[in-house]
Design a protein around this nucleic acid. Sequence first.
DNA 1: GTCTATATTTTGATAGAC
DNA 2: GTCTATCAAAATATAGAC
Lengths: 182, 182
Amino acid sequence: MSKAAVIPQLMAVFRQYGYEGASITRFSEATGLKRASLYHYFPNGKEEMAAVVLDYVTQALKDQVLAPLDSDRPPIDRIRAMNQNIDAFYQHGQRDCLLALLSIGEAHELFQGQVQQALKLWIDGLATLLINTGITPATAHQRAEDAIVQIQGAIVLTRGLNNTATFERVLKQIPEFLLRPE
Amino acid sequence: MSKAAVIPQLMAVFRQYGYEGASITRFSEATGLKRASLYHYFPNGKEEMAAVVLDYVTQALKDQVLAPLDSDRPPIDRIRAMNQNIDAFYQHGQRDCLLALLSIGEAHELFQGQVQQALKLWIDGLATLLINTGITPATAHQRAEDAIVQIQGAIVLTRGLNNTATFERVLKQIPEFLLRPE
DNA sequence: GTCTATATTTTGATAGAC
DNA sequence: GTCTATCAAAATATAGAC
């Protein structure tokens, strides 16, 4: 098994248990590799795994969330395309966001920089699209931030209420929330 | 030290490290009590501590968040009063929400019921106020849910961006968001 | 009610065979 | 590259003195 193939499996464990709840034993069970084999790929253990997974997630953000915003279709369609990929990536809100999980506990100090950078990337990508439709930069930035606030909050409530309806509803109202007249 | 006095200190540890990251050693350091003394108060260890803290948080929700909604002042003032207590409880978004943290990993299965109940209490309390101002029950419920979505998401972004501005801005726009005409 | 001491289990990490 | 074997550290939990 190649290193690239284990990364999504490590990601799944981090997303289920958070940083401190993710143990090498759980990684071993998820990948089918023994502990020592995981240390062969990641000599610095869990911390290195999380850093690599965070890079992987940042790339997924660029490819699946930001890239659809940069097409030649109408703005509303671009946002809907982003939403479709978000819905799939977060499994209708049933899977947690690594950027949120890696802001908790000792992970917060370790990955603050990477998390902040990824969130800013997301906000700026959305804001740029809004600015291109004629929305004031300040408003565009606030709305972009608010949209991501809503997505993150919807994940929390979807898990807490054990019901994907919240996530689906919040996602659905985001395109018109972002593009409404000033 | 009484049992009641240690609960807020346990809460602080859970809010900083999450359920799996909170260890008896960390509880010991936070309270000044040795491990065995903590087991005297909570024979079932961490799981019992979390359950008791969750009860404490649910009571705080009733007293500090829901009670202000039930006064004889104008609705907008009641929501602002709620917001003031929310701002203090979450320290401008710098402290995490236990209802969110206890929905992660193995805590999810253990506390799903209590978390769901607390969230529903919050949503229903807000929706009831909106309904009393003449807003349609369906709309009221959606807006109440959306407001809590925004608060939870704002906590995520405040920590991820390392900046309380997001939380303060989101909180500020909630009163008019809830009470705007249908 | 709080402590010391201790037992048990789990976790993180490494050495070295194949 | 993957494994078995092993170790050291940390975590959970309990017994029993004061």
